[in-house]
């Protein structure tokens, strides 16, 4: 490359630069990890919604996905393991006008944080949970997760997993989530749409994203490269919108049903409170719109 040519090339700019903390790049994720695509889908969803980034707050727990909060250019919190949802609940309840979004992993949200998930769904707190499910604890080296399919190998299930995993959409549905979808990191456009719908939906919304972990899950289970996993999603993901959430278990290297499964209306926590207190206290009650003026 000549000096002239170099000077004439414009500075390469990432199209999502204004949505990302470029001063933190390169990120820490492995090549072929699904997280890069998912962050892009999230950023595209925000663009699609034409929202000001000032009105979005991202909260993560701990793990590979926990690092998302550090790369998105919104107010963002990297909290403790499993506690992203209650932390986000506090943020949201103090300022319900903000779009509070939890982006975290399957272990963080459904093992150590499982109790918080079910109660936030029950209360219908108006937050969106994006769960990146790679079937394993990746940051710590590939231990069994509450989502690891039966028979799959993990470092703490060295002979294969015999614990029945959670089906995230079934759990979310049962606990009262108003919006539940599952896609994979291959389904970029549909995933983007789902994230945008989930954010726009008042109430507790959940998007599960199946995501490849070639470094740990794939290697331990001899599933090939990241590209091989994407091919697997391509060949084995079946779109079934509105499928019964009882039928969404994921078996080891078996068919993965994706789609939008739940989209219903329930009053949010704050709406329920305002309605009830309005009834109880009448004119004495000032509708709650946040405790910070």
């Amino acid at each position: 490359m000549t000096a002239d040519k170099k000077a004439s090339t414009p500075d390469p700019k990432h199209p999502m630069e204004h949505l990302l903390r470029m001063d933190r790049m390169p990120h820490i994720w492995c090549p072929t990890c699904g997280l890069g695509t998912i962050v892009t889908a999230f950023a595209s969803a925000i663009e699609k919604l034409e929202m000001s980034l000032d009105d979005v707050v991202v909260v993560s727990g701990i793990g590979c996905t926990g690092r998302v909060a550090g790369y998105v250019k919104t107010d963002s919190f990297h909290t403790t393991h499993g506690r992203a949802i209650p932390f986000a609940t506090g943020l949201h309840l103090v300022n319900p006008k903000l779009k509070t979004i939890v982006i975290s992993g399957d272990g963080d949200l459904f093992s150590i944080g499982g109790n918080h998930f079910i109660h936030a769904a029950r209360r219908n707190v108006d937050i969106t949970v994006i769960c990146v499910n790679n079937f394993i604890y990746a940051m710590t080296g590939g231990q069994v997760a509450p989502t690891t399919p039966l028979k799959a190998n993990a470092s703490t299930m060295p002979y294969g997993n015999f614990e029945r995993p959670f089906s995230i959409p079934y759990l979310a549905d049962s606990c009262g989530a108003v919006y539940v979808a599952r896609w994979s990191s291959l389904h970029v456009r549909r995933l983007t749409t789902a994230i945008a719908e989930a954010i726009a939906k008042p109430g507790f919304s959940v998007v599960e994203v199946i995501s490849p972990c070639s470094t740990l899950y794939s290697r331990r289970n001899r599933l090939g490269t990241g590209l091989d996993l994407m091919k697997f999603y391509h060949d084995n993901c079946e779109i079934q919108h509105g499928a019964d959430t009882r039928d969404l278990d994921i078996g080891f290297q078996e068919k993965i049903i994706v789609g939008k499964f739940v989209d219903r209306d329930r009053p949010t926590y704050v709406d329920s409170m305002n309605e009830w207190y309005g009834e109880v206290f009448g004119d004495k009650y000032e509708s709650y719109e946040g405790s910070v003026k």
Partner: peptide
């Protein structure tokens, strides 16, 4: 309810402590 505050009974103390940190960052 009548002074513009929000009380929430959380599912446990892990959540309670996390929530008040979030609430403080909310302002």
């Amino acid at each position: 309810p009548l002074v513009g505050g929000l009380f929430v009974q959380m599912e446990d103390e892990l959540a309670s402590m996390a929530a008040i940190l979030g609430g403080a960052w909310g302002g």
